[in-house]
């Protein structure tokens, strides 16, 4: 059962990464490409969080009366990293969407085929 969970969690995050990559590589619409990029980000965040998981661990917050519970806490470092990574991913997505708006203004289309220099 536990083995199954392990495969499930890692498999799910890797599957998310692959789905995102598939969208980025094959989709023709710019919006879908941006969505693909954020799906990849989501998969990686899940992966990072999973690394810090501890079986029957508690949240890394010391509540009154439980000042010595450090041994049972999950790893807080990946959580902090994910917090940073989410914000950075958000910033990049915002810039990407603004570029998409600019491209739409210029070419009146979102299809990547009709925008000449994006094909290579």
């Amino acid at each position: 059962m536990y083995k199954f969970l392990e495969y499930g969690v890692y498999g799910a995050s890797i599957l998310l990464i692959l789905i995102g990559l598939y969208a980025v590589l094959t989709k023709k619409s710019l919006i879908k490409i941006v969505i693909g990029l954020s799906i990849i980000d989501g998969g990686i965040h899940l992966l990072l969080i999973t690394i810090g998981y501890l079986r029957q661990g508690t949240a890394p917050i010391f509540s009154p009366g439980f000042e010595n519970a450090a041994a049972k806490m999950v790893d807080p470092v990946p959580q902090a990293l994910v917090l940073t990574a989410i914000v950075i991913g958000f910033g990049v997505t915002a810039v990407a969407l603004s570029l998409v708006i600019r491209l739409y203004r210029h070419h009146r289309t979102l299809q990547i085929d009709e925008i000449k220099s994006l094909k290579w």
Partner: peptide, 11 residues
Amino acid sequence: NSAEAAFKYLM
């Protein structure tokens, strides 16, 4: 057409 180059770079 700089948005295209930027989008490529960003991707």
